[in-house]
Write a protein that binds this DNA or RNA. Sequence first.
DNA 1: AAATATTAGTTGACAATGAAACTAATATTT
DNA 2: AAATATTAGTTTCATTGTCAACTAATATTT
Lengths: 152, 152
Amino acid sequence: MEGIGRYSAAVYRLGQSIFNSKLKDLDISSGQYDFFLVIAKNEGINQKELGEWLYVEKSTTAKAVRQLETKGYICKKQVKKDKRYSSLYLTEKGREAASVVESVFNEMLDVYSKDIPENVIEDNISVLKKVINNLQEEKSRYTMSDRLTEDC
Amino acid sequence: MEGIGRYSAAVYRLGQSIFNSKLKDLDISSGQYDFFLVIAKNEGINQKELGEWLYVEKSTTAKAVRQLETKGYICKKQVKKDKRYSSLYLTEKGREAASVVESVFNEMLDVYSKDIPENVIEDNISVLKKVINNLQEEKSRYTMSDRLTEDC
DNA sequence: AAATATTAGTTGACAATGAAACTAATATTT
DNA sequence: AAATATTAGTTTCATTGTCAACTAATATTT
């Protein structure tokens, strides 16, 4: 058998590259657009949830969020009940940009799935989700290894 | 519909992360192991072929190859008939490391595909290949755009 | 044969990302 | 209530990767 890893990697990198080409005019690049879109569709979301949704580390989320904030697309509001959290919202500028980014995103969906039946894509996604679960389990096994090796 | 891109990205990054944990002792890291393995299984291969196989840019290949060379795992031999090419071979040290890296790679294959039937994985890979083709076509459309916009 | 294209590989600048150590806030234990 | 642990987010550093401009070698055109 031969690696799902290699092909996923290719899909990821090619996708990033094309996104950057398509978004060249806008000042939102491949490292930010998905954070941006998730915030746009889930205003009020916090960074923890955002990172979990995109399967990235919290440091990555922090950086993407800061960039989007610096560029004026989003703003952060500290949550009063628990000041550790902050909720993320679009600014006016963000709301204007959202439709452009969304349409590029939709273009990309068509590129990915060109000549592939929708149900095949869906099956594919559910397999990838299962693979991700497997990987997350394995990763947490490593991350937790301090504790585990102490106890067992 | 919702994005194959996001899931492929997650598979890619989680995979890299776990590889790094597993290879912590060895001084071959996630950015090099697949180049190393492809060379190990195809001694004499050149950088162009290597990069095509892994779907990466030639500059990425160049850097990974140099790292592996610096660390003493592989060596380059310029091709006499066409001096632009060089063929890549394992050193003694490389040959020793290969079996270790291979076994980690095989462990990873099991992680990816845990509780997923082999034929499902295979179907999945063939869909991903199709997606990659789609992306490559789109990417070349952008890369070629200088010429295209001039002519048309 | 000289001029021009293309090709394999290199290099430098830069973006994206994870790991680890950190801070501040809240929860849990004692 | 004080001590301890956990949690959300930040910061710093190292690694991975692309892009674009470059060199040297070969192929193609004129």
